[in-house]
Simulated assay, not measured.
Amino acid sequence: MADLQWNSLLLKAMSKRRTWVCIFLLVYALLLSSSWNLVVSIRSWYNVAISHRRPTTSIGWPTLYASVLYGGVFGLLAMGAALAVAVPATLVTWITVLVLLAFAGKPRRALVREGRRITGDIAGFAFRILIREGNFVAACCAVASFLALLIRRRGMGEDDR
């Protein structure tokens, strides 16, 4: 009886959108903390690059390169965190479809054939969404980091560099 109540509570919690958002944020934070050295190395490269630049360059290529690198890192991190959330949801969808096909009276051979086709369809669809969302996050982070680096650079005086 206690197991049934626990399972019911767990299913109710996992059906909430905020639970999935919390899982996404937790995985994203874990990925970010594990790749923090990469972000710090991009920052230190950028600081060295702008300290050695010529005064004639206006915006500067180092700012553009650093912002693209930041966007790429954060886009990959977002794709990794989304993958951690998408895999359980995809498995639940796949199992549901196969169970419904089994209850519809499909023979085993047809069920296996349909299962393979459905697996390919679901995986392809999830992969396309994952790439699109990762590119969106990467672009947003690249633009935001470019603006932040420009503002920081404009705020620094010539003697601060």
Rank of each mutant, 00 (worst) to 15 (best):
N37D: 08
W36T: 10
G72W: 00
L77G: 12
V87E: 15
I23F: 08
A138C: 04
N47A: 14
L4C: 09
M1V: 05
A13P: 02
V48I: 03
W45M: 01
V137T: 15
L26M: 06
S58I: 12
I122F: 11
A66H: 09
L130V: 11
G71L: 00
S15Y: 01
L30E: 06
S8T: 12
A104K: 06
L4D: 14
F24N: 07
S8A: 06
V68G: 08
R117S: 12
R132I: 02
L11D: 14
G60I: 04
R18I: 12
A66W: 01
R128S: 15
L11I: 04
T56R: 03
L26Q: 09
A81S: 10
N7A: 09
L31Q: 05
V99D: 11
I129P: 00
L101E: 13
Y28M: 05
L98Q: 12
E133D: 11
E114D: 13
A82R: 15
L130R: 06
L26A: 15
Y65V: 10
S15F: 00
I50T: 14
I59L: 13
D3A: 09
F125G: 14
V39W: 01
L25W: 06
C141M: 12
Y70S: 05
S33E: 04
G105P: 01
M79V: 08
S41P: 01
Y70R: 03
I59F: 13
W45P: 00
L98I: 08
L11K: 07
L25F: 09
Y28H: 05
R53H: 03
A138Q: 04
V39Q: 05
L4N: 14
A86D: 14
C140L: 10
